[in-house]
Nucleic acid binder design. Structure first.
Lengths: 337, 337
DNA sequence: CTGTTAGCGCCTTCAC
DNA sequence: GTGAAGGCGCTAACAG
């Protein structure tokens, strides 16, 4: 920077002002400085800027801590894409934050936040009593949740109405004449699971179907868990006639198991799922799924974070639409795409 | 930090040494300092450390610039997972680098590198005359390529033998009696496309099959491109009896079009593809695909980057195994998983 | 083993 | 509109 200043015949402060596009600077010197910057192929040292200005132009994205498995879920890729779209528009970069070896969830946050590495954070799909949220809240860290938080109701967040979506999906199956509907879930401490479970229960109740304890089982958000849990269902005395699965990945596992057991989908057992990844679309039979608009979740979360950073925050919670995409796995007539 | 120093009754340097786990420091003071750090809930300012030490403990991952489309490809998610696995082990974080508005590929690199934001970079699947590589090379930036570089042969990189893989896949189809084999590709300026194309040509030649110009067409690495290109194939006078597709996503588009045209796969037309995402596994019919071990590509790339950073770099190029996963789309007998 | 002294490269008052 | 001085929080010699 000194070089630039010298060559342009101005002081370092002036160069600094040009870089940050300060208003009160003459067009002439500005132009001159920009030329010299170009000539010397100068780019400001981001780190030094951050240190001096206490801003990083970076947002952190916290990956879920059961990352080993779930990192690979299409949901995150889509959300990340949405975030990236908005961030790059604002000239921000994205820091992917994962737990370092043996570090717990709150430690990561402390490290990142107290280390001043980012201006704000986006969290994805929290677990229930996520101590992290408490920490961020208490320390006044700008952050947005993709998902919902049960403990506090004033957390800036972007989410679907997962309870209602699950209600709708369950209702759909009931209206199609099914009354032995099971629910296969992922990690029980994830908030999204709880909400989907609630919607499922509410629908059963509204339609006067007694809840059967054997019909709610869960493991991990993974394909093989879907497979394994479906095995368990098939061993029940009172075999189900429909399965709702908390995630497409799991539903593929379920579908595989059903096929192996010579169950016909949808005739013997209907199958419906969440997140509408391409997997659901191209499975055979194709699987009815809830489109949750993951990319939009990412975009809106990022937008909201910028709103907070610019202190023009509006409402706290934003709800993104969902939509049931009906496919073969719930359609007895084969006339649906 | 000053507070910690004061309370622990030592100097700032000592605290600094404890933080960086300097060897020549007494266990007693170290312990004392650590206690005080804990007590004051102190975490070092990463940015300040970076400025002073000229290291960031961060690696940058450059997303491909046709990101709009390709960001969503499972390949990147898997590679990113691999990278993240190794990085977090070394206590590094990952900066996702995308083009800011109207910024070109080389500008991004300049901004990131000259801005000292990262210690090293991982690039994914470069385009052919990627000016970026030249820039990085000339400026002695530590970086690793996932993919190959045609212009220079001393670039640290991790890749599959895509040429051979494509050769094998083509040969497989030929041995199954097909001789009107087409190739549907993605962006032509991507290196991986070129190599796969070369392998395809070599196989044709080795088996004395004349190359038909109409049989090589390409567009983008997207589902709908696969669909559209397949349409074109189906309008040819001399309809093909096999299609090789450069990516699973595209192959689904192709498959959809074939079904709509009442073509039987594999009977009328065989279909084979690259990257072996879950989509290929669960499509109907399931699609033969090349498993390229994306996660391993990411891991190895990251490992190599650390080797370079620690200056114990070994060979430049590393080749990761691939494997043909045969599925229904190329099997006339239905006895394959 | 530990303290002292200078920066790292930039931004931000405060003058002029 | 511009320059000078001080400081952001930490590390890196250099002493001892």
């Amino acid at each position: 920077m000194k070089d630039v200043a010298k060559l342009a015949g101005v002081s370092a402060s002036t160069v600094s002002r040009v870089i940050s596009d300060d208003s009160r600077i003459s067009q002439r010197t500005k132009k001159k400085v920009l030329e010299v910057m170009e000539e010397l192929n100068y780019y400001p040292n981001t780190i030094a800027r951050s240190l001096a200005s206490n801003k990083t132009d970076t947002i952190g994205v916290i990956m879920p801590s059961y990352k080993e498995d779930i990192f690979i879920n299409p949901f995150f890729q889509k959300a990340l894409k949405g975030i990236s779209l908005i961030a790059s528009q604002r000239f921000f970069d994205i820091l992917i934050v994962t737990n370092h070896k043996e570090e717990n969830d709150v430690d990561v946050l402390k490290r990142i936040i107290k280390g001043k590495r980012v201006d704000g954070l986006i969290l994805t799909r929290p677990k229930e009593d996520d101590g992290g949220i408490k920490f961020l809240k208490e320390n006044n860290v700008p952050f947005v949740l993709i998902g919902s938080c049960l403990e506090y109701d004033d957390i800036p967040s972007v989410d679907n109405d997962n309870e209602q979506a699950s209600y709708d999906l369950t209702s759909l199956l009931i209206r199609k004449g099914r009354d032995k509907i099971t629910f296969i879930g992922g990690e029980l401490d994830s908030v999204v699971m709880k909400e989907r479970y609630k919607g499922y229960l509410r629908a059963l109740k509204d339609y006067n179907i007694t809840f059967n304890e054997d019909y709610f089982i869960s493991d991990k958000f993974m394909e093989k868990s879907g497979y394994y849990l479906t095995s368990r269902l098939m061993n029940l005395d009172n075999e189900p006639d429909a399965i709702i699965v908390a995630d497409d990945l799991m539903s593929l596992g379920a579908l595989k198991r059903l096929k192996e057991g010579n169950k016909k989908v949808p005739e013997d057992i209907m199958l419906a799922s969440f997140n509408n990844s391409m997997l659901a679309k191209y499975a055979n039979p194709s699987i009815t799924s809830i489109e949750i608009n993951s990319i939009e979740l990412g975009r809106k979360a990022c937008q909201k974070l910028f709103d907070i950073l610019e202190e023009k925050s509006r409402e706290n919670k934003e709800i993104i639409d969902y939509k049931i995409i009906e496919r073969e796995s719930t359609s007895l007539r084969k006339d649906i795409d």
